[in-house]
Design a protein around this nucleic acid. Structure first.
Length: 577
RNA sequence: GCCCUUGUAGCUCAGUCGGUAGAGCACCUCCAUGGUAAGGAGGGGGUCACCGGUUCAAGUCCGGUCGAGGGCUCCA
């Protein structure tokens, strides 16, 4: 079945669902019910909130409606007829009134249900498979997405061509649940959040911290190789900074409220840029020192609304892998291309190979002259094309201060995540009066580029957990190897093996607990430790080890030295296992 | 922020009709000395999120607060 046909099926299903709901609640007011990715929804204004049991009831009624094999009949009506037809259906009336003058109005009827609809639909409900859909959840949704309008009840459902596809999709949902970083974060003891200590603020446990350190070490090394300097800046700053940057005007609601001290307001930083600019403006700069590439793992705080907080993916305190590139107009193009390449290199090293770009251009309200916008946008586009990246252009979707490229990766479950961002800023150089002295002795305004490759470390960590389902590549694994003696008699040999691995900077532990080795294997397996190094009589006698991979594969009788270089090699090559 | 759902031991959860707290895992102690996903026995651990109401009696019913989950919206 083509995607288009499937959409038609899903949309037709939503009409069937609306009919079922109307059977149950004759007074229901109906809103809209489109096909969406993997299914459809319909919004209703109902006399009471829906319960889980209602969904089962609605499903049953839908099956009966489908079994009745009724036609979908399309009819063209005049505006007046339409208004009369939907009398009392306030939402439909509003939709009709908003239709542009002269637009053809069509309604679709199946059974007793008529809906204002552009179509298309299947010809007959017999084309819908009663075994291939499932109502999933009820959620609140504002009419027309406007928080000042009434909150409607939205029923989400999934629908497929046949029961097999439905089953596959439901399995997919289950798998996503298993991979949920909040669940794995708890199970693997990686991080926690504490309501009583502040929502949206992340606590990194020792094992999570090990992973973060591995990420940050790699990140720092690569930045040094790519010509960046590291800087460190404060976590708070007086209102002068944010008045100057404009954040207090534009971004006030997103900032933590200030602390008052010595008659001044100090704000937790929501961005690092003004601080980097302070360093730049600290003295006069020559064109000879540009480009400046200053990087910082800068922790910022933003007052996100409580309802949007979500595990590590959406938090109130997070660390951006931030850098600012300050350069001349002549350097801009090279810098943009280099940043993009660097970004792709980093993402690929973490195992993300499917990457696409989004170029956002000048919005209606913007600062900075058109010439600069044009030059910057061209440089971004050239860079994307030079790297042969698939990309889309979001016309007018840029921030008011400059055009940008966002990179999205696809994870192992096929979900897209926006990670890297490269943004021009024409606002702050102006506001902070940033200049450099050019060859001709005149002061000129530099270009400033903000960029984050991983985005936020917290969010990136969340994406990594879900991408690998907690079974991290060896170089990131909190425990890379665990030594398991088969019996206490071999504890000494196990300790010797552990020491040998630790000396090579391998993150190793040994399990000398009083459990049976079967239990130790099981625990290590549940912890998703890549290498379980089993030591018993045979190994102790020959100075060797037996390795069990977390995949279940076994490599027995490995001479110790060889086993170590085997693991070291996996780490260096950043292999998954 | 709004709508719905939800909150019982560190974790996962049970708790009937309102009668005063349970299991498994984890933890501690002891026994068991073991070859690739759970050896056995015993023990400690809870103001049932919080505040108030109804009742002779509230984990259970009602109201509120806070948090969490699913959405909506927002993310200059």
């Amino acid at each position: 079945m083509s995607d288009k046909k499937l959409d038609t099926v899903r949309h037709s299903m939503s009409h069937v669902m609306a009919e079922a709901v109307l059977q149950l609640f004759p007074d229901a007011k109906i809103a809209i019910g489109p096909a969406i990715e993997n299914g459809f929804y319909y919004d209703f204004d109902l006399p009471r909130p829906l319960k889980e049991e209602d969904l089962a009831e609605i499903e049953e009624r839908m099956k009966k409606i489908i079994a009745a094999k009724t036609d979908f009949v399309c009819k063209i009506v005049s505006r007046e007829e339409a208004l009369k037809l939907f009398e009392g259906q306030d939402y439909k009336i509003e939709l009709i009134k908003n239709l542009p003058e002269g637009e053809q109005i069509s309604v679709y009827t199946q059974g007793i249900f008529t809906d204002l609809c552009r179509g298309p639909h299947v010809k007959n409900t017999s084309e819908l498979n009663p075994q291939a859909f499932k109502l999933l959840s009820v959620a609140g949704a504002y009419w027309r997405g406007d928080e000042n309008r009434p909150m409607l009840q939205r029923i989400y459902a999934t629908a497929w061509e046949n029961p097999k596809e439905l089953r596959l999709y439901l399995q997919h949902l289950e798998e996503m649940e298993k991979r949920d970083h909040r669940k794995l974060g708890k199970e693997l003891d990686l991080f926690s959040l504490h309501e009583e200590a502040g929502p949206g603020l992340v606590y990194w446990h020792p094992k999570g911290a090990r992973i973060r350190i591995a990420i940050e070490n790699f990140w720092r090394d690569e930045h040094v190789k790519n010509g960046y300097e590291m800087v460190f800046t404060p976590h708070v700053g007086k209102s002068w900074l944010w008045e100057t940057s404009g954040h207090l005007d534009f971004y006030n609601a997103g900032m933590y409220p200030p602390m008052v001290m010595d008659n001044a307001n100090y704000y937790a930083k929501p961005m690092n840029c003004p601080f980097h600019i302070m360093i730049y403006n600290n003295r006069k700069r020559s064109y000879r020192e540009l480009p400046c590439r200053w990087a910082e793992l800068g922790t910022v705080y933003r007052y996100e609304k409580s309802g949007v907080l979500h595990g590590l993916m959406r938090v109130r305190g997070f660390t951006q892998d931030d850098a600012h590139i300050i350069c001349t107009p002549q350097q801009m193009e090279d810098e943009v291309l280099t940043v993009l390449r660097f970004s792709l290199y980093m993402l690929k090293n973490f195992g993300f190979t499917e990457i696409s770009a989004y170029l956002s251009t000048k919005p209606e309200k913007s600062v900075g002259d058109d010439e600069k916008w044009e030059a910057a946008t061209v440089s971004l586009k050239k860079a994307i094309e030079a790297e042969n990246l698939p990309y889309e252009i979001d016309e007018g979707g840029g921030a008011f201060y400059g055009p940008k490229i966002d990179l999205k990766i696809k994870d192992a479950m096929g979900r897209a995540w926006q990670l890297s961002t490269v943004q021009f800023d024409f606002n702050e150089p102006e506001r902070f009066k940033m200049v450099y002295v050019d060859q001709d002795g005149k002061e000129k305004q530099p270009y400033m580029i903000h960029r984050a490759l991983l985005g936020s470390i917290e969010r990136f960590f969340g994406v990594l957990i879900e991408h690998y389902a907690g079974a991290f590549p060896v170089w990131l694994s909190p425990v890379q190897a665990i030594v398991i003696p088969v019996a206490p008699a071999f504890d000494d040999y196990a300790k010797k093996v552990e020491k040998a691995l630790r000396e090579k900077m391998i993150r190793v532990e040994s399990d000398l607990s009083d459990q049976r080795m079967n239990a130790k294997i099981r625990n290590a397996q549940n912890e998703k430790i890549p290498y379980m190094i089993v030591c018993g009589e045979k190994e102790a006698e020959t100075n060797s080890v037996s390795i069990r991979l977390r995949t279940g594969q076994q490599m027995n009788g490995f001479p110790l030295a060889e086993a170590i270089s085997f693991i070291e090699d996996k780490i260096v090559k950043k292999e998954v296992i």
